[in-house]
Design a protein around this nucleic acid. Structure first.
Lengths: 207, 207
DNA sequence: CTTGTCAAAATAATCGATTATCTCTAGCGT
DNA sequence: ACGCTAGAGATAATCGATTATTTTGACAAG
């Protein structure tokens, strides 16, 4: 594996994991030293992260972790609530048997994954793959790209929104979602997804 | 202005203008020579364009213009038809007087802009600003970011979709859109926007 | 004729060092 | 005491050259 790739995955994981605070500057020199690579590689990595939305570039002032917080998280949730239900309707319309099987598989992996409390990264990945599996049959790579981007933003923002997840049964929500999808009940599934995405946000508002 | 920035805007414009064919490789050495900068700057520019979707990175095989075509253009149009009407509803719901004024101004600039045939770049920019003005009052920067990205992708794909624009009165469509928006008729405006976005694609399918 | 191999050329990736820019602070004048 | 300016240190941006990888094409074996 190339040094650039190695540093990229490492730094990406570190940012998503919360090793750097929002607005904290990401200094190429420091990072290059830490990861034992040259300045050019550190810069390249940062540029790639900027493209993904996991870093900001301040011209002539280097790079920094994007500012996030509860407000931004709400906006992301609203964006997801706007896009994902529509995608799910398309997926239910267009999905075939193979897709149903993949949805079942993804849900099974999520349901049996080690709990969030024990291994956040592992559970989050299973969570992402389940949600993505639901939408993958929409047949539109552009929309799936939009989903990917929103998901990344969401993960970063949630990490720093300092919100206590309210008492909620995520597993039950996922199960209901899977059932509605496999029953091809587009309306119900879309509504469940919309609520699932906005739930934490709404509790934020009212708390 | 920094060399990096200068090269960035130049190369970006060149790609959008169609100076490079899809899948054509973008060789850092050539571009560096052409723009009189070092290799590092050329690489940085290409990395930034990758982040925007205006270039692709093939590991260990350099950079290239993304593959596009009619099919991808249809997907982009579908994505826009999914996202933008919903954004427009939000904008009509939340927009204030100041927003109405900006919409009027943007439409005026578009209506009086030099025709597409005489100056494609100038007209396209006015076109983009009008569409963006419509949505800017949605109050959600994340969705606006999604719009920006889709628009860029759309411009590149349209350039290479080799589609003859059918006989259509874009000006009339824009005017009707503006009227519906300023009348705060959310349903009609959203529908007009959806049709406006998908029109060329539908004619593609049926032709 | 096809296919596999190997070396040469082309290109990508990386590096160490240089130059330009910004930031912070001490010193000066008001 | 306050604000301004200069200069030193820190950081970002750029460069030219080196190293690693891939591609190309000649050539030999089947």
């Amino acid at each position: 594996m190339t040094p650039s790739e190695r540093m990229y995955v490492a730094l990406r994981a570190a940012i998503l994991h919360g090793d750097f605070a929002p607005r904290q500057s990401l200094k190429p020199q420091e990072l290059a030293t830490k990861h034992v690579v040259s300045l050019a590689v550190a810069r390249e990595t940062l540029l790639r992260l900027v493209g993904e939305g996991l870093a900001e570039r301040l011209p002539n002032r280097g790079f920094a972790v994007p500012a996030t917080g509860a407000e931004r998280w709400q906006q992301i949730a609203e964006a997801r609530a706007t896009v994902e239900p529509a995608m799910l309707r398309m997926a239910i319309e267009r999905g075939d048997l193979e897709w149903e099987a993949r949805v079942r598989a993804a849900h099974h992996r999520l349901a049996r994954a080690t709990p969030y409390e024990q291994d956040p990264d592992s559970w989050s990945e299973a969570h992402r793959l389940f949600h993505r599996a639901l939408l993958e049959a929409c047949g539109n790579d552009v929309l799936l790209g939009t989903f990917d981007r929103l998901w990344i933003d969401s993960e970063l923002a949630r990490r720093w929104s300092a919100v206590k997840e309210p008492a909620r049964d995520a597993a039950a929500e996922h199960l209901a979602l899977e059932e509605a999808v496999l029953a091809r009940e587009a309306g119900r599934a879309a509504d469940l997804l919309r609520r699932h995405v906005t739930r934490t946000v709404r509790t934020l508002r009212t708390s």
